[in-house]
């Protein structure tokens, strides 16, 4: 056994199973994984709708924008887009933080800040769409 192997050899008298039990990644993660996919599926038509909306509203003035959002179809689809988009974003940001930030305390803090900002963006976007729709 060379020096490097000796450094890596495990000197703990517990079975592989005993060491692994309770430390796996599969706790509540599967639910988030699934929601990430479901929001992705919802975003396939919704993001295409968004792209078409952007083209329709290029160079529009406020009156045209307000008239567009006053259509219940558009308001509903924009609200759906906002819900799915920001949920998908929050889960994506969580995965990125979990991958790159090893310190649990820093990660928790960044996670709270990121999710707070994302929630705020989602709420202010939805409130704007609603106000345009009802004014």
């Amino acid at each position: 056994m060379n020096a490097e192997d000796k450094n890596l050899s495990i000197k703990i008298r517990r079975s592989q199973l005993g060491r692994a039990r309770g430390l796996g990644s599969a706790k509540s993660g599967i639910g988030q994984w699934w929601v990430q996919r479901m929001t992705a599926v919802a975003l396939v038509p919704l993001s295409l709708y968004f792209v078409v909306s952007v083209i329709l509203l290029l160079g529009a003035d406020q009156a045209r924008m307000a008239a567009y959002m006053a259509e219940p179809w558009n308001a509903a689809l924009f609200l759906a887009l906002i819900a799915m988009l920001f949920y998908h974003l929050a889960l994506g940001v969580q995965v990125i933080l979990e991958d790159y930030v090893p310190s649990e305390a820093t990660r928790l803090m960044l996670m709270l800040v990121a999710k707070g900002v994302i929630l705020f963006l989602a709420l202010i976007s939805a409130a704007s769409v609603l106000k345009l729709a009802f004014s």
Partner: peptide, 28 residues
Amino acid sequence: AALGAGTILLALWLVCAVSGDEAFSIIQ
């Protein structure tokens, strides 16, 4: 991640649309 940052523009666009004619013409 870039699209996530881009959602700030989306929110800003919608907020400006509510704020009135002047704000919306500025963002447009």
